[in-house]
Design a protein around this nucleic acid. Structure first.
Lengths: 214, 214
DNA sequence: TAGATTGTTAATCGATTAACAATC
DNA sequence: TAGATTGTTAATCGATTAACAATC
C-alpha cells in the first residue's frame, strides 16, 4: 500500500526522521550530492530496509542506483517535521537548566529562537542571560502575544511543573517541552514532549548492568 | 509464561518503569501505603493492563484487592534498574549545558553524583561551578580512577562528541549519556543513551502540526 | 547491458490490550 | 460472602525486516 503523504507518520518514524535529518545535514556539509539508504543506515546503526520504509512516508523519491539527493531530502524532512519555518520559544524557569537553555546556541540551527525567559522568583527576575532579561510570570502572556511564541519549555522543579504548564496554556502556548520529572496533564489540543534526563540516566544504568546479557 | 526475573526487560518497559518509579515516589511522599495498577495507569495516562504486565517483570507481587505496597515497589524498581546504589558521573564540556548539569540539584535524588567536569578549552579550565573546578582533559583518567566514576555525560558540540566519547572510553568509562546531536559509535561493551533536545523539539513541532489529525 | 538501488509487499517479530480465572 | 484487583494467557495491533520486481 502506498502511504498517504503528509499525514500521520508513526512516532518511531518521526524520531528516526530527526536522526536522518542530522545525518543528511552532515553529509551535505561534506559536499556529497547523493546518499543511499544503506549509507544512512550504516551511519546510524539501522537497516537500509527501515530507512527506505521510513522515507516512503515522505513526498519524495530516490533514484535507483544513485540513492537520494541530499539537499532535497533534507528539505523534505524539514518540511514534513514542520521545522522549515522558525519557531519562537519561551522558557519557564531561570534556574541552572533554564539559563543554560536560554544561552544554548544549538537551537538556532534547528530553526528555534528563544524569545523570553520567566521565573516566579523575584531574586532572579531582571537578571540578564545574553540578550534576554528574566521576566516576571505576569508578563508571560504579553510576551507570547507580542513575539508570536508558539513553544514553551518547562525548566522548573517537578512540583512546580503543572503550574507552569497551566500558565503556558493560559498564555496561548500549545506546544510544551517538559524538562521536569513530573508527568504533566494537558488538554487534548496541547502537545507535550518530555525530556527526562534522570530517566535517561536510569535507563543507561540498566543497560550497563545488562550489557552483553540482552 | 512466567517471566525470568532480573534479566532482559524490554526497552519500552524499562522506560515506563522509570515513570512508575517517579509516580510511586510521589505517592509515597503523600503518605499512601498501597497503590493499584489502575491508579498508576491513571496518573500516567496508561492502561492498568500495561502496568500489570510491566510489573510482572519484577521480582515482586501485589495483593488482590489492595494493589502494590508503595515502599517495597519503589525499592524493587530501583533495584531492577540498578539505581539503588550511587553512581558517579563525570561531565565532558563546560559550556552552558555542561555547567548547568554540573550544578543541577535533581540528580541527587536519583542517586547520581557529579564528581568532575572537564573541558579542552583552557579559558574554561580552573573556573568554579559550586564545589567543582573545571579540569583539563588530561586529568580525566586520573579523576575517574580516583573517584570511581562509572558514567560520563557528553555536553560538547556535535563535531567534538566522538572525540569526547573516545576520551571517556580510554578513561575506563562504559556508560555514556550523550547530549550532543551527533550519533556516536562505541564498542560493544559500552552503553550509550542519547538525550536529543533539538530532536525532541522537532518531534514536538510535528505533533503540534498533526494535533487532532492523528 | 549488467549491476546497484529503490519502492513495496509480505512475513516476522515484538508490544499492547483484552479478558478472565485465581485470590484476597 | 461479595467485590475488587492481581497475574497471566491469548488476541490484537503495530513496527521491523526480508525479499524481490521494477528501474535507472
Amino acid at each position: 500500500m502506498t502511504h498517504s503523504k503528509n499525514i500521520c507518520i508513526p512516532d518511531p518514524v518521526i524520531r528516526r526522521l530527526t536522526r536522518y535529518l542530522e545525518a543528511v545535514r552532515e553529509y551535505s556539509e561534506s559536499g556529497s550530492e547523493w546518499i543511499s539508504s544503506q549509507e544512512i543506515a550504516d551511519s546510524l546503526g539501522l537497516t537500509s530496509s527501515t530507512v527506505r520504509q521510513d522515507l516512503s512516508y515522505l513526498d519524495f523519491s530516490g533514484i535507483s542506483k544513485r540513492g537520494y539527493q541530499v539537499g532535497p531530502l533534507r528539505d523534505v524532512i524539514e518540511n514534513s517535521l514542520g521545522t522549515d519555518s522558525t519557531h519562537k520559544v519561551v522558557i519557564i524557569g531561570a534556574g541552572n537548566l533554564g539559563r543554560a537553555l536560554a544561552a544554548h546556541s544549538g537551537f538556532t540551527r534547528g530553526g528555534f529562537a528563544i524569545c523570553g525567559i520567566f521565573d516566579s522568583d523575584t531574586r532572579l527576575t531582571g537578571t540578564r542571560i545574553g540578550a534576554l532579561k528574566v521576566r516576571e510570570m505576569h508578563r508571560l502572556a504579553g510576551t507570547v502575544r507580542k513575539k508570536n511564541a508558539d513553544i514553551g519549555m518547562i525548566a522548573v522543579p517537578g512540583p512546580s511543573a503543572q503550574k507552569a504548564l497551566e500558565d503556558l496554556l493560559h498564555a496561548g502556548i500549545r506546544g510544551i517541552l517538559n524538562f521536569s520529572s513530573a508527568h504533566l496533564n494537558g488538554p487534548k489540543g496541547a502537545s507535550i514532549v518530555d525530556v527526562r534526563i534522570v530517566a535517561s540516566l536510569q535507563e543507561l544504568v540498566y543497560r550497563m548492568k545488562s550489557s552483553g546479557k540482552c
